[in-house]
């Protein structure tokens, strides 16, 4: 029992180092992220969107304040006009959200109905992980940017290049209506379960995931267990809805 030495530790570390992933895979992922990052650094709509949001955040409370400037203190504290506004906007201009708040920086795009809608989460704005669990996996998407939009049920192609399961096609390959989308708050994580309907372990580390922003390749992590699937069809993979969306 007392035979362990520092050399044993060196040997164990050296053995562990041989399990390192391929540098080419990591380099490719980094290059992809870096180049996508360059494109998104100054999206054309961001400056006008932030300006508009800031104008609304400052202008609306200011207009309310000016319009009802002659009202009594009773109204300012929550009278007839106040209930329609968020509490931060009731009393004065000083109560408007700070310029750096998520509210004022949320990227919004024009919607068909004339309102605004959050943009679909870009791959560079989120961290995606697929962790094996039993014969399936848990897919997590964590926002690293502003509030953005995800399809409630993502499409999953496991392995990448195989048949797709999820909203893109049905089990028979026929197109199905696009599912509803949900909002992923800044810094929040959405989780969806991916499982094998055959009860066998899905093979292949590279998995393609699409939440509405186009396919993104993700490497499945975690230990694999159980018998492997010999045949994978479009109905072999079942994907649950994202939880954690609003």
């Amino acid at each position: 029992m007392s035979g362990r030495s520092e050399d044993d530790l060196r040997a164990a570390f050296a053995a562990k180092a041989t399990e390192a992933p391929a540098a080419s895979d990591v380099a490719r992922a980094v290059n992809q992220a870096v180049h996508q990052g360059r494109r998104r650094r100054r999206p054309a709509w961001l400056v006008p969107a932030v300006t508009a949001a800031a104008a609304v955040a400052v202008g609306v409370p200011l207009a309310i304040t000016l319009t009802h400037g002659g009202n009594s203190s009773k109204e300012k504290a929550g009278g007839p006009v106040a209930p329609a506004l968020p509490s931060a906007g009731r009393s004065s201009l000083a109560a408007a959200p700070p310029p750096g708040s998520a509210r004022s920086l949320t990227p919004q795009l024009p919607a068909e109905g004339g309102g605004t809608v959050q943009a679909t989460c870009r791959p560079t704005e989120v961290t995606v992980n697929l962790r094996r669990a039993g014969t399936g996996a848990t897919l997590t998407v964590t926002s690293r940017g502003p509030v953005c939009r995800l399809d409630r049920r993502p499409a999953v192609q496991w392995p990448a290049g195989g048949p797709t399961s999820g909203p893109a096609t049905s089990a028979t390959g026929q197109p199905v209506p696009k599912p509803a989308t949900g909002l992923l708050a800044s810094g929040a994580t959405a989780t969806a379960a991916v499982r094998s309907t055959a009860g066998c372990m899905l093979t292949g580390d590279l998995v393609r995931v699409d939440w509405g922003a186009g396919p993104v390749e993700v490497r499945a992590t975690g230990a694999s267990a159980g018998p492997t699937c010999t045949q994978v069809g479009a109905d072999s993979v079942q994907v649950g809805e994202f939880s954690g969306l609003s």
Binding site: E19, A23, A33
Partner: peptide, 24 residues
């Protein structure tokens, strides 16, 4: 760097994630 990260994290997937974040 990847070999170092694998030894440090004791997890191939986490090592990959950590190195990617760092390189970006």
């Amino acid at each position: 760097v990847l070999r170092f990260a694998v030894v440090l994290t004791n997890d191939k997937g986490l090592a990959e994630d950590v190195v990617q974040e760092v390189l970006i």
